[in-house]
């Protein structure tokens, strides 16, 4: 944040005298002002010879601070925003949509947790193809492990279960569908930050036309970007992880994106596997899905661990709604639901 000195040009009232007064109380930047008790400072200013001018300076500072927080809203504003801007994107998978109450909600961060080869990337590719096929905007796919497969997406587009998607969509040429999936290879968290910041700038300046607006952002997998920086006792790794989470949520909220990330599993104590991004990450995603696959079987199970809009997510968690994903058939067929 800006040092007071640099603000003098824009706001002449923050002049040398004001800066000197602030400096005498150890305040040099807007940051410092946020951390201090402004009322107490103003009381001090009263005793100064030119108190009137200092007070004007503080009024200016308060308007600057007023611009630093996010807008005040009420429930009705939020409800309107949810109604008009935060739609759900179908995953192209009927049972999965049912499980998620319609699909991936824009403005929310959905996480897939699961051990290796439990179908996380398959779900990502399926969702990408489904959204691309709808032709409502583009899909940004950040690939961290070279696991992105355009061929697989093409297969999904061809063979997507007709019952879920619009029949009309089948007539859209494959090239057009494939054009709306943008893939970036990302191998470290800083590259991801670069891309996300660029995306934010693009969305803000609206370089893209409305129909090319990014609708869905996929990071497969976010855990492989973050785990390398988590080691050691310093808090920097965790700080980057939480910042990445806030950036994704901010993008999702402000630009009405659905965000889908994956998180792999690692061996924990006593041989129990746990998500690579653990306790601190838990408070980041809105929705958390657990994927698992029985040994030697082609069937994947999906259950909801957390869902911010389902009231009874706890019952979902216990009942283990199971989705069956058959891999050899090249499309996701949902066979049934088996409460445990």
């Amino acid at each position: 944040m800006a040092p007071l000195k640099s603000m003098e040009q824009e706001y002449p009232i923050i002049d040398a005298a004001f800066q000197k007064f602030c400096a005498s109380h150890g305040i040099f930047s807007v940051e410092d002002l946020l951390m201090c008790d402004i009322d107490a400072l103003m009381a001090f200013a009263d005793k100064e010879p030119k108190s009137e001018k200092l007070k004007q300076g503080f009024t200016q500072i308060l308007t600057i601070i007023d611009g630093l927080h996010q807008p005040w809203l009420n429930g009705l504003d939020l409800l309107e925003d949810a109604k008009w801007n935060k739609h759900v994107l179908s995953t192209g998978c009927k049972r999965m949509d049912e499980l998620l109450q319609g699909g991936l909600r824009k403005g929310q961060l959905t996480e897939l947790v699961g051990p290796s080869s439990s179908g996380k990337t398959q779900v990502c590719l399926q969702v990408a193809s489904s959204v691309a096929k709808m032709q409502i905007g583009s899909v940004l796919y950040l690939d961290t492990g070279n696991s992105f497969s355009p061929r697989r997406i093409a297969q999904f587009v061809h063979k997507s279960s007709g019952s879920v998607l619009n029949y009309q969509a089948d007539h859209i040429p494959l090239q057009k569908v494939m054009n709306s999936v943008l893939c970036h290879s990302v191998f470290d968290i800083f590259a991801m930050f670069d891309i996300l910041h660029q995306l934010e700038i693009n969305m803000k300046s609206q370089i893209h036309k409305a129909d090319h607006q990014v609708q869905l952002l996929i990071v497969d997998s976010i855990s492989s970007l973050i785990t390398p920086i988590l080691g050691g006792s310093g808090p920097q790794g965790h700080a980057l992880m939480i910042s990445a989470g806030f950036l994704l949520k901010k993008l999702a909220h402000e630009h009405n994106l659905a965000v889908l990330v994956t998180n792999h599993m690692v061996g924990g104590e006593g041989g129990i596997t746990k998500p690579a991004l653990g306790e601190s990450w838990k408070s980041v995603p809105h929705v958390r899905l657990l994927l698992s696959r029985d040994h030697g079987s082609n069937i994947c199970n999906v259950s909801v661990l957390k869902h911010s809009s389902i009231l009874k997510y706890s019952t979902f968690k216990r009942n283990y709604n199971i989705l069956l994903l058959h891999f050899p058939k090249m499309n996701m067929l949902l066979v049934g639901k088996h409460p445990l």
Partner: peptide, 25 residues
Amino acid sequence: FIFCINRFLYVRCSNSFEFLATLKL
């Protein structure tokens, strides 16, 4: 319903400075 939901006041903050600015105002 409208009467009630209008009385639910909301603000979000994505870092400590936003939080402090919110509290100050």
